[in-house]
Amino acid sequence: MKYLSNVTSLQYIPEKCAGCGRCVDVCPHSVFVMKDKKAEVIDKDLCMECGACALNCEFGAITVDSGVGCASAIINSMIYGGEPSCDCSGSPSTGASGGCC
């Protein structure tokens, strides 16, 4: 399944890639493949912006705005400001009200 096309904030700078393959290893949607000892983005639209690749790229070749992709969290952040956060569903004791994590 793919989400909207051409929206991801994923940026990859091939010149900085040292070919360690970590991005291929951590991406849950196979956005990257190794080709000629360098990473290559095969389909940007598969990216869900989880941020695992950017966090684990030692060479700073990848950037992505990772964050909570939950509609109510984003609406809350639009109204009250700040970054969207998962805490929309309240504390565990009051019972989670949403499926979002």
Binding site: D65, G67, G69, C70, I74, G98
Partner: peptide, 18 residues
Amino acid sequence: QFTGSTTFTSMSGVKKEL
């Protein structure tokens, strides 16, 4: 709202939709 529970939607995409 279901975008918060899926395994493939992105924040940028949800922002655009909203």
